[in-house]
Amino acid sequence: MTAAEKDTEQTAAPSPKAIAAAKAFVAAHGGSARAVVENLGQAGARIVLVGEDGLLGDVMVPDVAAGEALVEAVDGLSPHEWDGETVAALKIGPAHRRKMAGPRAR
């Protein structure tokens, strides 16, 4: 096994903290959630979670492979893309919209 393969193998495993955060989100938001893994380049990957109740959460991991491994490791998470069904499942309230808009919206 080459050094590059070892690095890939090591980064493909999500941290226990990331797994715990995803499990807590699933438990708090209805027992299941959609997971969209987004590549952020050098910053890693973001797993956007959409709970059964429509609320959002996210977990950061080192790379897309770790994100996909996290989705597989957590019961109740299912992999999704940003399709119409996933977007329709969101329930974003006015307070969250203001927060996302930043200080100019306040």
Rank of each mutant, 00 (worst) to 15 (best):
R46F: 05
G51A: 05
D7E: 12
A3G: 13
R104D: 14
G30H: 07
I92S: 14
L77E: 03
Q42D: 13
G102L: 07
A73I: 12
G102M: 07
R104I: 13
E72W: 04
K99G: 03
A3F: 03
A95P: 00
A21N: 13
A33W: 05
E5C: 03
F25L: 06
A65T: 09
A13Y: 00
E52Q: 14
G30P: 00
E68H: 09
G84A: 05
K17Y: 11
P14G: 05
L56T: 06
A4H: 04
A95Y: 07
A73F: 02
K6Q: 10
E68W: 03
A69N: 15
D7I: 06
N39F: 02
A22D: 09
K23D: 11
R106C: 11
A45F: 05
A45H: 02
K99H: 15
A3R: 07
V50F: 12
A43T: 08
V74Q: 10
A21G: 06
L90R: 15
G84F: 11
A45D: 04
D83T: 07
A45W: 00
P103T: 05
L40H: 04
A33F: 04
A101K: 04
A28G: 14
L77S: 02
L90Q: 14
A66Y: 00
V71D: 07
E9I: 08
E52R: 13
M60W: 01
H96M: 09
D83G: 14
A88Y: 08
A88V: 08
A95T: 03
P16G: 11
S15C: 06
S32C: 05
L49W: 00
T2Q: 05
V74F: 08
A28H: 04
K99M: 10
R97H: 07
G84V: 12
I19M: 12
L70S: 01
I92G: 11
R106I: 05
K91T: 09
R98F: 13
V37D: 00
P16T: 05
E68S: 05
A4Y: 04
A13D: 07
T11F: 10
G67Q: 00
K91R: 11
G57V: 09
A22P: 06
S15F: 01
E72R: 15
R98E: 10
V64R: 08
T11V: 07
A101T: 13
P16C: 01
G41H: 12
V26L: 09
L56K: 14
A28V: 04
G51C: 06
V50D: 03
A21K: 14
A28Y: 01
A22V: 10
I19C: 01
V26K: 02
V50R: 11
A22H: 09
V74G: 00
L40E: 11
A73M: 03
A13H: 06
R106W: 11
T2V: 07
A101G: 07
I47Q: 00
K6P: 02
D75C: 10
T8W: 15
M60I: 12
V50N: 10
E68G: 04
G30V: 04
L77T: 00
A21R: 14
G54Y: 13
A35K: 01
L56Y: 07
D83P: 06
